[in-house]
């Protein structure tokens, strides 16, 4: 009898546990639903109807407006390539540094690590004027490279920090056996370390992707030509001197979150795949 009660209790417990999990999951989806509804409203409805009400009729024209009036296609393309290039270089450079700091032997490594960590601590608004001057001097103002470079520079520290915790946990025997086999450092890095750290590489890729995709302060400041602007700047098209078109902003936000959502779902699976791949190699 006691045993069956125990199993019974355990079942109820599991049920409640899953209830909780899915309830929270439901809550976490709501923001997307809200954003969709928001993007189908006009200003009146945005402020005066409940958060999760579908306006009637839904104003799909918001999307038409965003597509026609903003140069969304071009902004989209810019966002895409700037984000891609920035993410690849940030993660790669950060992996190099983390590898050198955690696995290799040199005197200044703690100092260098400290230098990178301090890079986390400066508020971006106080860097705008000095950086503008710098890009002015190297003639990169109004050039997309200025955005790529700042994206990399400002995300390197946080990426290195995240990688650090993982690299510290990697078993050293691996490298030892690799070196015994006469493997060079480069080969070890690319063939052993990178595959083994692929879960965290995917993680930092996701994080960097989100940061770079949503970045707008630097784009606003360093870019003035329309041809180099990115999606986040597109939002400004709907903020006027005295009035703001919230529905169109909602549509822009929705358009800009979709690609990142899809890539995220795709990459998120890679965290698992990476782990299995690493396990086989290891």
């Amino acid at each position: 009898m006691e045993k069956s009660t125990y199993i019974y209790m355990k079942k109820i417990g599991m049920f409640l546990f899953y209830m909780m999990l899915f309830l929270v999951a439901g809550l976490q989806i709501l923001p997307l639903v809200w954003l969709l509804f928001f993007s189908l409203k006009n200003n009146q409805e945005v402020f005066n109807t409940p958060l999760f009400s579908l306006p009637s009729p839904p104003r799909w024209e918001n999307y038409v407006k965003v597509w026609v009036e903003g140069d969304i296609g071009l902004y989209f393309f810019n966002s895409l390539w700037i984000t891609t290039v920035s993410v690849i270089f940030t993660v790669l450079l950060a992996s190099f540094v983390t590898f050198a700091i955690t696995r290799m032997n040199w005197k200044l490594k703690h100092v260098v690590l400290g230098l990178f960590m301090v890079g986390l601590m400066i508020p971006i608004h106080s860097t705008l004027i000095p950086l503008f001057n710098f890009f002015m001097k190297v003639k990169l103002i109004d050039h997309p490279m200025s955005i790529v470079l700042t994206n990399i520079g400002f995300n390197l520290p946080i990426t290195i920090m995240i990688l650090l915790g993982f690299y510290n946990a990697l078993p050293r025997e691996l490298e030892e056996s690799a070196v015994m086999d006469g493997c060079s450092v480069h080969r070890m890095f690319f063939q052993v370390i990178l595959p083994m750290t692929s879960p965290v590489i995917v993680t930092t890729t996701i994080i960097n992707m989100i940061y770079n995709w949503n970045e707008f302060v630097f784009v606003n400041t360093f870019i003035s030509s329309d041809e180099y602007k990115t999606l986040t700047v597109g939002i400004q098209n709907f903020i006027g001197q005295y009035t703001t078109d919230w529905g169109a902003i909602g549509a822009t936000l929705m358009i800009s979150v979709l690609p990142i959502l899809i890539i995220f779902f795709f990459l998120s699976n890679k965290i698992m795949e990476g782990i299995t791949a690493g396990a086989i190699k290891g």
Binding site: V97, I122, S126, P130, L131, F134, G153, F154, L156, I160
Partner: peptide
């Protein structure tokens, strides 16, 4: 990476 940090982050600091 260090070069980028020094130019982009330390110069502003």
């Amino acid at each position: 990476a260090l070069l980028m940090i020094i130019i982009l982050v330390y110069v502003p600091i």
